[in-house]
Nucleic acid binder design. Structure first.
Lengths: 173, 173
DNA sequence: GCCCTTATTGATACAATATATCATTTCGAT
DNA sequence: ATCGAAATGATATATTGTATCAATAAGGGC
């Protein structure tokens, strides 16, 4: 559908319906736990949900401003911080962007797979990776509490469509 | 950045001697491969070596300027880029900083373990983690070419010294 | 050594990302 | 209705990272 340019695939991510339901649950939970589900926080979630993919803080800001011109970077970052703490939003360090968690029910150490061609992000929760990481930590005497695992490559569909993505990089960080 | 803050442990990392030797090897290799080992690039390596830990680009800049006041951010980033491509320097996304690779002999997908108390960074090359990541990629149809694995926690010595580091974070990105 | 080509640097400007501060507003409980 | 805590708005600024382009330095062939 596009030329060369990676479209973001809205609604590609595990259906929006169930996410919405999950977010309603969140609302209840918020109240129970005494934190507030405010307009701004809601707006950030809606924007991410509508996007269906990752957005940088300032892309998010731009979208929010269409509705409420008073939004500021600080506000966006505060809302994002809030949701990250709640485990509902993930930060992608590789791309300096933010994305909805696909399983906001419970916090978890996850892995993010990023397609460098189409920008799609898939969230995984792979026991094998986590276990290996924890073992590694133990071996080196660490007690770990934060796992940042971002794996970048080319997804199946993109390879099939010949978007080879031969960037010449060696397989290193 | 202030007190309370983790001192960096220079010379804690796998002895500087062997790194120096490795860097000499690099010099030769550079020549062989036709790229240039210039003053600035050398300076960046020396600064990282002297630090014995991670430095942000601007901390690095500050140090370089003590010797040559004409250094600029662009210059520092260019040198860092050069070394990262060569697999000699790693970027820590968690902390926006840069650190010498401990095994610059060959490029490799590695894992970085970061102690949130003392700031120490240990570089690992764990087959288990890599294998699990690759398997995960395959399962999801990805061909991966970049592994970002940064594990944060508290190292043994810090735990022993009671720096518990109870930050209250849940085990999530 | 000298010239030539090309990679690298220096200088400047600027873009993108993120946080600090503080007065004001909102929310929920009393 | 009032109070206190939490969140926001507004503003400013810090931090991190790039773009551009003329000037310079490094290595290869003569």
């Amino acid at each position: 559908m596009s030329d060369t340019v990676p479209m973001r695939r809205a609604a590609q991510r595990p259906d929006a319906e169930s996410q919405l339901r999950a977010l309603e649950r969140l609302e209840t939970e918020c109240r129970v736990r005494g934190c507030r589900l405010t307009r701004q926080r809601r707006a950030v979630l809606r924007a991410l949900l509508a996007e269906g993919g990752a957005l940088s803080a300032y892309e998010l800001l731009e979208r929010l401003r269409r509705v409420d011109s008073r939004c500021t970077p600080a506000g966006v970052y505060r809302a994002l911080e809030f949701w990250m703490t709640a485990g509902v939003v993930h930060r992608l360090q590789s791309t300096r962007s933010f994305i909805l968690c696909e399983h906001p029910e419970a916090p978890h150490p996850g892995q993010l797979l990023i397609c460098r061609e189409c920008g799609q992000v898939i969230e995984a929760e792979d026991k094998g990776v986590v276990a290996a990481a924890i073992r590694l930590g133990e071996r080196l005497g660490f007690v770990l509490d934060r796992h940042l695992v971002e794996l970048t490559g080319v997804c199946g569909p993109c390879r099939a469509q010949g978007r080879a993505g031969d960037s010449g990089r060696s397989p290193t960080t």
